[in-house]
Design a binder for these strands. Structure first.
Length: 554
RNA sequence: UGACCGAUGGUGUAACUGGCAACACAUCUGAUUUUGAUUCAGAAAAGUCCAGGUUCGAGCCCUGGUCGGUCAACCA
């Protein structure tokens, strides 16, 4: 049996089309975001599918903003979308806008009217809704359905000319009010909105609906494979109806199942709510499933692309475990992140058999996984910071870190033996005392000692105080949207822990945005934009896999 | 009492298009390790929603169910 995954259903379809010379063997896809919010991890799957498929078959991909609703769309979103796609590593062949096609779309509408396939309806939104029927009951014809072509042409022109108020009239297709497909029950083609558009300004006061814009835009660009998510499936017959009636290029729509991730929400509406109600700091809050959030969190484009590859493409509803995303970023960061030592919860370790002021510089590896091994020097002396939980007054079973009488290796330095500890009046441990074994120097160890535990540490006098932000999943439940009540009731109160007094080794003072670090035994971290001179701030991308923590749970 | 779509280990995705279910993640062992990480070796885990049918042979085809999703915005 082959270990290689077979092609997904879209690759099969396109391979077949290319083989048969459909569209002249050409492949042109498009990624069609509406600029009404930031892109999220779900979009990244769609981006990878659209750009990936085209690239696989030697084709191209257009970026097309589906900007037919001026009330929700903004230039800020256009810019963020472009930034995110570029960051993911994709290049579009053309940057288009559905609004570029407004004149042609208007002409298409006129053509439908002339064919008797569209009419102007004066009914109110409520009336239209009530005449629509339900999925199990047919709708009723609008009293305006029988208007003459001349009257419709006149009215539609006057709609365009701004003679009517918002909502006063709409242009509808004349199809079948009894169709079992709700989208065929005389769908609205154009509505009046006296609203400035982010690109066309006040030039138009009528705007096409999605169904009347998307397929035709595909046709205008001669898109060969128009790939979208499952919820548009019921729109496909209408998509094809317009193409047929207007005699346009026959683009074909294909649908795949969108990506769902557990412990988060993925709808733009909900994400917008989190931003507006300040449950997060913004669209790029590192807890957000947005591409900008993942970027700020320290995810790499490679890891996101790899994730999209691993989740696959199919037509079945799915909920992916965030654990897979985390695996992908760890896999990537393991081989590229510089190792560094940072103590998040500092406890003083005093090495009694070392004189005050003693400092020596020890080499330590930057990345044991790297092709070319490099080292840097770290200072070592009498007073160090170690992690508070790397010491236990009364060690639990199988604990192999520091405890009275126990030995551990200080990473890249010496083996130390705990000789005691100090407590304050309230019983709080204030320092751990130890003696070091001079013969156990890292790389020159002839002490003959075998210790199981290795802990990280930072030389106290030269430590760099810094802020570290620890992120956890944004929601406490796997699927916040399906729980009773408001999804926001399920926000994880511990999704962000800010550690103010972390102690880092000196080299991290010079950490630059975009660099990735592994704080040894703690996880992967990136400098945050909030860093300032002398006050580094780090975001935790993801923890290290914790076999010990897991074992303790059981 | 509608239309359309879907159903394969815990989670995803495969199965040369009808030939006796594979890969990844997760899980559990063990080895290695100056990160309880990484790496390595191994284990457990579905008989493919159900019932019929066609066939020498069905996860793949047919019929009928069951369950789940989508559609009734002047959103996309």
């Amino acid at each position: 049996m082959s270990t290689e995954k077979g092609p997904n259903f879209l690759e099969e379809i396109i391979a077949e089309d290319v083989k048969n010379g459909k569209h002249g063997g050409r492949v042109l896809t498009r990624f069609p975001p509406e600029p009404n919010g930031y892109l999220h991890i779900g979009h990244s799957k769609s981006i990878c599918v659209n750009f990936g498929l085209a690239a696989h078959f030697g084709g191209k991909t257009n970026l097309r903003f589906d900007d037919t609703n001026p009330e929700k769309e903004e230039t800020e979103y256009v810019e963020s979308i472009k930034t995110d796609i570029r960051w993911l590593g994709f290049t579009w062949a053309n940057e288009f806008y559905a609004s570029d096609y407004f004149p042609q779309l208007f002409a298409f509408a006129v053509k439908l009217i002339e064919q008797g396939l569209a009419y102007v309806d004066d009914s109110s939104p409520e009336e239209i809704a009530s005449m629509k029927g339900t999925p199990t009951e047919p709708g009723k014809d609008s009293p305006f359905r029988a208007r003459s072509v001349e009257e419709n042409l006149d009215l539609f022109t006057r709609m365009k000319n701004g003679e009517f108020r918002d909502g006063e009239k709409v242009l509808r297709a004349r199809i079948d009010m009894a169709s079992p497909n709700m989208h065929f029950r005389d769908p609205i083609l154009y509505r009046i909105k006296h609203t400035a558009h982010h690109r066309t300004g006040n030039h138009w006061c009528i705007y096409p609906m999605y169904d009347f814009a998307h397929g035709q835009s595909d046709a205008i660009e001669q898109i060969t494979h128009s790939i979208c998510t499952l919820e548009f499936e019921v729109h496909r017959p209408l998509y094809e109806w317009f193409i047929e009636k207007l005699g346009l290029y026959t683009s074909r729509q294909y649908e795949f199942a969108r990506l769902n991730l557990n412990y988060t929400v993925m709808s733009k509406r909900k994400l917008l709510q989190l931003v507006q109600e300040k449950h997060v700091s913004g669209w790029d809050d590192p807890r957000m499933p947005t591409i900008s959030g993942l970027r700020r969190r320290g995810y790499t484009p490679e890891s996101v692309r790899n994730f999209a590859e691993r989740v696959g493409v199919a037509r079945r509803e799915n909920i992916i475990d965030v654990g897979l995303l985390e695996f992908c970023v760890r896999e990537d960061l393991n081989r590229r992140a510089t190792r560094a030592m940072v103590v998040l919860d500092p406890l003083k370790l005093i090495i009694e058999n070392l004189p005050e002021g003693h400092v020596e510089h020890l080499p330590t590896e930057n990345n044991p996984e790297a092709e070319e091994k490099t080292t840097r020097e770290i200072p070592f002396g009498r007073e160090l910071w170690i992690e508070r939980d790397d010491f236990m007054e009364v060690p639990e079973k199988k604990y192999f870190r520091l405890a009275p009488g126990k030995m551990v290796r200080l990473k890249s330095a010496y083996i130390v033996e705990c000789t005691g500890f100090e407590k304050d009046a309230s019983g709080h441990i204030t320092a751990v005392l130890a003696r070091y074994i001079p013969e156990s120097k890292s790389g020159h160890d002839n002490s003959g000692l075998q210790v199981k535990g290795v802990i990280h540490w930072v030389h106290a006098p030269s430590a760099v105080p810094c802020e570290v932000r620890l992120y956890d999943r944004l929601f406490r439940v796997e699927d916040p949207s399906s729980e009773a009540g408001d999804f926001k009731d399920y926000i994880n109160p511990d999704s962000l822990t800010v550690v103010k007094g972390a102690m880092a080794e000196p080299c991290l003072n010079a950490a630059k945005p975009g660099e990735h670090f592994q704080f040894m035994r703690k996880g992967y971290f990136v400098p945050d934009a909030d860093s300032s001179a002398g006050h580094p701030v780090f975001n935790r991308t993801v923890t290290l896999k914790d076999g010990w923590g897991k074992q303790k749970e059981n």
